[in-house]
């Protein structure tokens, strides 16, 4: 048995994936909260109990995400960009361009056929364009975030919505609600604005086929459809897009472990 743990401490949610020789054994996610160190411990504990193993059984841990430096028990930190790339290229080997809808930023990266990162871009600070805007909208419109996408499909009217930035979008949406616009129409407009912004970011890097979406925002069907329409091609989306980085971290941990084993240094990793 060689258990590998991938743990992704994001700015909003944290996720963990436990694998045994490339087989998924447990997964878990929760709000990141204020203390990343505690959150990391909590996730680990939860995964261990799900798989019914102890800490000693874990051969290698890779931490990723915004708060990866706070995961005290990790053997290595790797950025979420590399972790997403690894997981996506494992799941969908033909993918070259990935858009990650994160809470803090949207990111676009290009990978080669082997999951190696070739170039990347993050949404700008001023331009906004992160998935946080969806969360804000769900709150303002009092809609369950899971239903945002479906609701947006019911839009009847095209309305104008300008900002992809969460701060401005909030006040813009509030004033639109006051003007009597329908929820569905507003949501469709927001999805359109956000996807236009992210697609534009991807264009800046140059979109190469195939195209995949990942990150928490990629759970939203409205966004997936809008991005697909803009790209004029099918998009690949993992079943649990919010877990992708944690999965990639676990895969990278597994790969490193195997490399180390080949070098005959297994004892070193096992401690």
């Amino acid at each position: 048995m060689s258990y590998c743990l991938g743990i992704d401490i994001g700015s909003a949610y944290s996720k963990g994936v436990l694998m045994d020789d490339r087989e998924l054994r447990a997964s878990y996610y929760c709000l990141s909260g204020g203390d990343f160190r505690l959150t990391a411990d909590k996730i680990k504990k939860e995964l261990l109990s799900q798989a019914d193993i102890t800490s000693k059984d874990i051969s290698r841990t890779v931490a990723t995400g915004y708060g990866s430096k706070m995961v005290a028990f990790a053997d290595k930190e790797i950025t979420d960009i590399s972790c997403h790339s690894k997981a996506i290229s494992t799941l969908f080997p033909s993918v070259k361009t990935i858009v990650d809808f994160g809470d803090l930023y949207s990111k676009v990266f290009l990978i080669d056929g082997k999951g190696n990162l070739l170039n990347f871009l993050l949404s700008g600070k001023c331009a906004g364009g992160s998935a946080r805007v969806l969360k804000v909208m769900a709150k303002v419109l009092q809609v369950n975030i899971e239903n945002l996408g479906d609701l947006s499909f019911k839009a009847k009217k095209d309305i104008e919505f300008n900002t992809g930035c969460a701060v401005f979008a909030e006040s813009e949406v509030i004033s639109r609600v006051a003007e009597g616009f329908a929820k569905e129409d507003l949501l469709a407009a927001i999805h359109k604005a956000l996807s236009a912004q992210c697609y534009s970011l991807a264009e800046r890097l140059g979109i190469e086929r195939d195209f995949a979406l990942t990150g928490g925002g990629a759970r939203n069907k409205g966004l997936i459809k809008a991005m697909g329409d803009l790209a004029g091609m099918d998009v690949h989306v993992p079943d649990a897009p919010h877990m992708t980085a944690a999965l990639g971290a676990a895969i990278l941990a597994d790969e490193a472990l195997k490399r180390l084993e080949v070098r005959g240094q297994n004892f070193f990793v096992d401690k």
Binding site: Y66, G67, S68, K69, E77, I78, T79, D80, I81, S82, L104, D112, N116, L117, L118, N119, F120, L122, K125
Partner: peptide, 24 residues
């Protein structure tokens, strides 16, 4: 306007890019 965590995460990702480009 500055976030050390954010800046260093970006630098890390960039270094990983260089690493994989060098490998290729």
């Amino acid at each position: 306007s500055y976030s050390e965590v954010d800046t260093r995460n970006r630098i890390d990702a960039f270094i990983e890019t260089l690493e994989s480009v060098a490998k290729d």
